[in-house]
């Protein structure tokens, strides 16, 4: 592969983020000194106990928040705000309730001024691709959780982003739906094809098994303040879907669990107070 393929598509250099606590008035350090290179075409998972700043990290890369210190570069340029090139999937889907499925999907092209017929056609194809054919004229409140998530994914795909930023997208669905959606996610992403041709995914999740199954690398964050504790390579062959119950997966999950075990226990203890 040539040099361009090796240059990181996202680079975080010594990124820190602090907030002012609304009630106590003190400063909360959400992230401290995070440096990370995301390779183009890779599937990167981020895991960690609650309060470790995973969602904050994603918001920074998305461009919703500026870092307190440090730099974030996308494709060589500094990030100044959200952009269709870095598509985001939110935990609560964030579908526009007053727009139908098809209208939600075509929102990105609509915002960019693409003509009605072209964007309608494109949206219809995407709806089919994610399995929502026949539901184009439904409103979000008429859809199940899994269907809403597919709609959100189609909406993201309509802009053909280089990066998919996903904030616990499968947290709100039941286990069976989650398995189906994981497989679909891998398929749509391009699991098993050349990494040059597929988008980059940054996937924040609570589930260690999910992280290992889907990702090329897993970043483990520690909490209070949030910082990188470990980055583990997942050296398993692709496509991954058939490997769901493979012992290699379980082994890596065990390894990761040991890394975060203590912090997770502390998080639970503190939440109880």
């Amino acid at each position: 592969m040539d040099a361009a393929m090796n240059a990181p598509i996202i680079r975080l250099a010594a990124v820190s983020k602090s907030f002012q606590a609304p009630r106590s008035g003190g400063i909360v350090e959400a992230l401290r000194d995070v440096s990370l290179d995301v390779r183009p075409g890779e599937f990167l998972s981020i895991i960690g106990p609650s309060g470790c700043g995973k969602s904050t990290l994603l918001s920074l890369v998305a461009g919703f928040l500026p870092p307190t210190s440090g730099d974030i570069h996308f494709d060589g340029r500094q990030i100044t705000g959200p952009s269709p090139e870095r598509g985001v999937m939110f935990q609560d889907y964030a579908l526009f309730p007053w727009r139908t499925v098809i209208e939600n999907i075509e929102f990105g092209p609509f915002a960019r001024g693409i003509g009605r017929r072209a964007r309608r056609e494109n949206a219809r194809q995407l709806a089919s691709l994610v399995g929502l054919a026949g539901f184009e004229d439904r409103y979000p409140h008429e859809l199940s959780g899994g269907m809403r998530q597919r709609c959100a994914l189609a909406r993201l795909l309509a802009n053909e982003p280089k990066v998919w930023l996903m904030d616990e997208p499968l947290a709100a669905v039941d286990l069976q739906t989650r398995i189906i959606l994981q497989d679909e996610l891998l398929r749509l992403w391009g699991d098993g094809i050349e990494s040059c041709a597929r988008p980059t995914v940054v996937f924040v999740t609570h589930g260690i098994d999910e992280a290992v199954l889907l990702a090329d690398r897993v970043v483990v964050l520690a909490r209070r303040p949030g910082r990188i504790k470990a980055i583990i390579d997942v050296d398993l062959p692709r496509p991954r879907a058939p490997l769901r119950s493979a012992p290699e997966v379980a082994r890596i999950v065990e390894q990761l669990w040991n890394v975060i075990r203590d912090e997770a226990a502390m998080a639970i203890a503190e939440e109880g107070n």
């Binding site: 919703f64 269709p84 526009f96 929102f107």
Partner: peptide
């Protein structure tokens, strides 16, 4: 819901939109 506004910005909507 501020998340909806973020989603719109992410999808490329201008301030007016």
């Amino acid at each position: 819901d501020p998340t909806l506004i973020r989603a719109a910005e992410m999808l490329g909507a201008s301030r007016r939109l």
